[in-house]
Simulated scan of single mutants.
Amino acid sequence: SWLRRVVDELPLGVVALGERGDVVLWNRAMGAITGLTEGDVVGRTLERLPEPWGPALAEGEPTGLVGASGERRTLHLRRGAREGPLRLLVVEDQTAQRRLEEHVAHQDRLGALGRLVAGVGHEIGNPLTALLLVLERIRAMDGAGERSAETRAAVEEALQLGKRIRVILGDLRGYGRLAGEVVLQPVDLAQSVDDAVRLLSLVGRDVEVVRAVAPGLRVRAEGTRLTQIVLNLLANAVDASPAGSVVEIHAAVIDEAGHARVQLEVRDDGMGIDPEVLPHVFEPFVTTKQPGEGTGLGLWVVWEFVGHMGGEISVDSAPGRGTVFTVKLPLASAEEATYALPKEPRS
C-alpha cells in the first residue's frame, strides 16, 4: 500500500508490534541498521529476536551495538504508546551525527594546539638565536687550546642540541607562515612525488618506493608544500618499514558528490600504529618513533598543509597490518587560474 511505501522510505527505523507483542512491521531502515530482514522477524516477539537486537529493543537503549555494516552504532529508541492493536518503536541512527561532532571537536582541538605551539615557537626563537651565537663565540675563542677536550666537546654538544631545537622551531613556525595567505595553483602531482622520492633517496634506506601516479595529473595546491606533504608521508612509511620491504604511493581521480578530487595513498607494511595512539597521530609532538628519532611534528605539519589547501587526510592502521595514509585534494582543470586563499587561520 502507499502507506507502507511511505514507511519504507523513512530514514528512521520503524517497528510495529501487535497485541501479543509480536513484530508485524519492520521497515527497510530497520533492516539496514540491524541486518535483519522483515522475513527474519515478523511473527516473533522482541525477546525472541537474534542478539543483541532482541534484548536491546525489548529492555533498553540500543546504543553502542554493532550494526549490519560492522560499525558500532549510536542509536536512539523511542517507544510510542499503544494505538489500538499496535505499538510503534522508532529507532534513530545517530552514528553519523556523533561521528561529525567528534570530527569537529577533534579539528578544533588540533587547531588550538597548532596555534599554541606556533606561538611558543616564536617566543623561544629569539633567545635560542642569542644562545647559539654565544656558543659559537665560545668555540671561536678556544682557538688557542686553553680549554680541555672535555669542555670543547661539551660546547660542541650544546651547539648540536641548539641546532636541533632550531629545526623543531622551523616546523613550528611553518604553521604561522601557513596561517597567512596560501596561493594555490595547478601543480603536477607526479612531479611532486618524483621530487619527494629523490630527496628521500638521499637517506639511503633499504626500502623500495613503488609509484603509480599518472603524469600530468594536476591538483590545486601550493607546490613546495605539496612536495613536503609527500616527503613527510613517505619518510614515515619508510621509517616504519623493515629492510627489503616496499612502500607504495598511488593516486587516482575520484568523484565525491559530483566534485572531482584526487586521492593520494601512501601504504606501508610496517608494524602499524597502536589503537590508543591512532586518534592522536596528527597532533603535535605525538610520535611512534623511538626517543630522539622524531619530533612528532611531521604529521601535524602535513595535516596543516593539507587543510589549508582545501583537502582532507585520514589514516587507517592496526598493529601487524601496516598503515595507509589517504590525502584528498581538489582536482585542477587545465584552464584553472592561480588564486589565493584568504588570510584566515585553520581551526
Results as ranks from 00 to 15, higher is better:
Leu3Thr: 08
Arg5Thr: 02
Arg5Lys: 01
Val7Asn: 15
Asp8Tyr: 02
Asp8Leu: 07
Val15Arg: 02
Arg20Thr: 07
Gly21Ser: 07
Val23Glu: 02
Leu25Ile: 11
Leu25Trp: 13
Arg28His: 15
Arg28Cys: 12
Ala29Gln: 07
Ala32Val: 08
Thr34Ile: 06
Gly35Arg: 02
Thr45Asn: 11
Leu49Ser: 03
Glu51Trp: 09
Pro52His: 00
Trp53Glu: 00
Glu59Asn: 10
Pro62Lys: 02
Thr63Ser: 10
Ser69Val: 04
Arg72His: 00
Leu77Pro: 06
Arg78Pro: 08
Arg79Asp: 09
Arg87Phe: 03
Val91Asn: 11
Val91Glu: 11
Glu92Trp: 10
Arg98Thr: 07
Arg99Ala: 00
His106Trp: 15
His106Ile: 14
Gln107His: 12
Gln107Thr: 13
Gly121Cys: 10
Glu123His: 02
Pro127Asn: 06
Leu133His: 10
Glu136Ser: 09
Arg139Val: 15
Asp142Ser: 13
Gly145Cys: 05
Ala149Pro: 11
Glu150Arg: 15
Glu150Ala: 15
Thr151Arg: 06
Glu157Thr: 15
Leu159Thr: 09
Gln160Gly: 15
Leu161Lys: 14
Leu161Met: 15
Lys163Tyr: 07
Lys163Cys: 01
Leu169Asp: 01
Gly174Asn: 03
Gly176Thr: 00
Gly176Lys: 01
Leu178Ser: 09
Val183Cys: 13
Gln185Ser: 12
Ser192Val: 10
Asp194Glu: 14
Leu202Asn: 06
Val203Gly: 07
Val209Tyr: 03
Ala212Asp: 14
Thr224Met: 11
Arg225Ser: 14
Gln228Ile: 07
Leu233Asn: 01
Ala235Asp: 07
Ser241Glu: 09
Ser245Cys: 03
Val246Asn: 05
Glu248Asp: 11
His250Glu: 07
His250Arg: 10
Ala257Cys: 13
Gly258Tyr: 07
Gly258His: 08
His259Cys: 13
Ile273Met: 06
Glu276Tyr: 06
Leu278Pro: 03
Lys289Pro: 05
Pro291Asn: 04
Gly294His: 00
Leu297Thr: 09
Leu297Pro: 02
Val302Leu: 06
Phe305Lys: 15
Val306His: 01
Val306Thr: 00
His308Asp: 08
Gly310Thr: 03
Ser317Cys: 04
Ser317Ala: 00
Pro319Phe: 06
Gly320Ala: 08
Thr326Lys: 15
Leu331Cys: 14
Ala332Gly: 12
Glu335Ile: 07
Glu335Leu: 11
Ala340Asp: 08
Arg346Met: 11
Arg346Ala: 09
